[in-house]
Write a protein that binds this DNA or RNA. Structure first.
Lengths: 405, 405
DNA sequence: CAGTTAGTAAGGAACCTTTACGAACTAACT
DNA sequence: AGTTAGTTCGTAAAGGTTCCTTACTAACTG
């Protein structure tokens, strides 16, 4: 079998085309001449490629420009056509599946969702997803060939090369061939990755860490997850298990004595800052106290306990303080190893970020000489946007970014 | 000013040439036909490029081959010429400067060394380095134009793009323009990086982690350092400070109470597993005990204390056990974040590796579900070899590896 | 009108590929 | 032993890309 030749003259053109298209995505309202000087490609070459891209509807022209003050012909401005191709972003979560249609600008044109566990019980989850996708396309009256690719974030360790979900406890999946199944039903290219990885990609595309090269995203939820972008690339680890910070140990004495891992497969940090562990510790405190406490009459959730801590409730504060402490020291460890440009916190707990971030920063200042910007996610539908970013990255189209920038 | 055009037909040839040369470096005794099918480049193209490479002395032919058992013309075997170009590796350490000449196979042909602090006091360190280089070249009767590049490992945070040592406390350097100074005096291309980064490159080139994509090297010495290769690339961090694991915290309670940082700029882990901290803790134990102890009559060093611990001396064991503990938990944290293929331990303490690695592995097994191979450096002159690997990576020659493999 | 800038056309050089061929060797058959 | 078929290696020749440089037209300012 003959392999495809890569380093052929054709490939050169491909490279240049990609370069130009990427430049236009980031710099709208530019001209052929500007592209030529910015990317140092000769003017005739730029013209030829731009004409092709216009024919393929990736770009469009608009002549509304003004000439330079020194005189000269007016440039013909070029714009990236955000509506020529679309992407579908799917976020499969333990509780909710969200599906959206994105244009190339990352705008969500349509969104639908359903409960995961219900779908798992009542019907086939895969079919439900595919039907929802088809429904959305119909609603937006989009033909399937307008869709460039489908990006999926899955809640578990994922073999991205083969599109196989190695393990997703909340779905009961083990070595589930998600990509091939979806591709069969949807007849579209599908790209799958871990939900946390997808989320960092989203932050890099549209969020706080726009275009940064070194980003860490930490999700605080049932467990602790961590998405890593280094040297501009997603880092997945030797066996797709990078960023399993839930196993981090911030207190060796306690680790030695043994901690109660809330669930099997959860690590030290999971068992100290994960939602269920917060609840568990609060329950213990409540039992130990003989006084009355309003939380004794409520169904406990991490969020409620946070709320009480914010109002300086002594019991809740004790519990939360310890949690925040662990988070802070975990951040110290992550930052000293990675020296990232940004650390972004996501997940349920991050919504209380404004309140606890200053406490965290205090710890960082004390133990680290490195300046790092810490913030919480500000993006709605981060996972959907990230799934789109995954498409952009992985799709064998012009926009694919190979290697280092 | 006109920039250099990159995506020109010439560039294509450059890419192919590089590909072929790299293939030959890794697969000696191959033929034009084999290259063609392995790299999927057409036979005529391979022939043309190989002829050029032979003319440039990168390769040589040897006809001693046997034909395939199915018949056919005998292939002309091609060999990488390890002696056509040379590299100079320099390891600037706090106590010792080592300089070596390497061939392209990574063999050290000549080696010289001198004491750093003496040179710093008595004369100009830079001149001393350059004179040593010149001396070595003379000794090997090598012309300067046979030297492809010079690689340098510096003991501090280094701006590799500009070749500036941002901070090297042991040399008293702050923002020292090492590259330009050396280039001026040696008239050769110079590449500078942090000593730990250089060391990982060495391990990847010639050591245990040969050609692995994801490697962590941890050096245990005065402080704790960490070199990181992810996705096949060196990771330096957002501000060249990645891998400063010395700041890692493995015991939040102790960190909170405050630990005595042995030196300014040393972090929690430095202060618990660094050589001086081991000595300090042993001193305390010795003072506290009224019994006689042979170590009371010796000059204390980390190595000696390790030796006594190995012989089950109770005092030394207590000290070392705590140190090993911290190392183990630090490894848990590093591994859970990175999921590397290999973790390699270097530095002075690593020489006792055979003895303490089993203890470390026990901790890892308990807290991590990830399988990771942990070992200690087996390479002599790792830093010199690493400096050579740095040359290979960074040099704008054919062997430079851009982006992902 | 000169001066300046945007985009196009034509000619030329470099690259790679495919197809075709000679050289060299094995194995099997006469 | 000699011949022939089948393989494989490496090289030519021809053809088609690509890109670049130079030179041009178009269009606008002052």
């Amino acid at each position: 079998m003959k392999q495809t030749r890569t380093n052929t003259p054709n490939y050169l053109k491909h490279l240049n085309k990609k370069k130009i298209l990427q430049y236009l995505r980031d710099n709208s309202e530019t001209s052929r001449a500007e592209i030529s000087s910015a990317l140092s490609i000769s003017k005739p070459t730029v013209s030829a490629i731009v004409d092709e891209l216009i024919a393929e509807e990736w770009l469009y022209e608009k002549e509304s420009a003004v000439a330079s003050s020194l005189g000269g012909r007016k440039p013909i401005h070029l714009f990236f056509n955000h509506s020529a191709h679309y992407m579908i972003g799917i976020d499969i979560g333990g509780t909710l599946v969200e599906i959206g249609i994105l244009n190339m600008a990352g705008d969500i044109l349509a969104l639908d969702r359903f409960e995961t566990q219900v779908a798992l019980k009542e019907e086939d989850l895969l079919s439900k997803i595919c039907n929802t996708v088809k429904g959305l396309l119909q609603k937006e009256s989009l033909a399937s060939d307008k869709v460039m690719a489908v990006g999926v974030g899955a809640p578990g360790i994922t073999d991205t090369e083969n599109g196989i979900v190695i393990e997703a406890p909340s779905l009961g999946w083990v070595n589930f061939p998600l990509r091939s199944e979806l591709e069969k039903q949807l007849q579209l290219p599908v790209y799958v990755d871990n939900d946390v990885n997808v989320a960092v990609l989203g932050e890099q595309w549209k969020g706080k860490a726009k275009d940064a090269e070194n980003i860490i995203l930490i999700t605080l939820g049932t467990g602790v997850g961590c998405g890593i972008i280094v040297n501009g690339q997603l880092y997945r680890g030797a066996s797709y298990a990078a960023g399993e910070v839930g196993y981090m140990i911030t207190d060796k004495n306690e680790a030695k004595e043994g901690y109660d891992d809330i669930f099997d497969g959860y690590g030290f940090l999971d068992s100290h800052v994960g939602g269920p562990s917060i609840v568990k510790r609060m329950e213990r405190k409540l039992k130990a106290t003989t006084n009355d406490h309003p939380l004794k009459r409520e169904r406990l959730t991490a969020k409620r306990i946070f709320d009480y801590a914010k109002q300086n409730d002594p019991l809740a504060s004790e519990v939360i303080e310890e949690t925040v402490d662990h988070i802070a020291y975990a951040l110290v460890n992550v930052i000293c190893i990675f020296n990232p440009q940004y650390v972004i916190l996501g997940g349920g707990i991050s919504k209380s970020g404004d309140w606890f971030l200053p406490k965290v920063e205090k710890v960082l200042e004390k133990h680290l000489p490195l300046q790092t910007e810490i913030s919480t996610t500000k993006l709605d539908n981060l996972s959907i946007i990230g799934a789109g970013a995954l498409c952009l990255r992985e799709h064998e189209s012009l926009l694919k970014d190979e290697g280092v920038v």
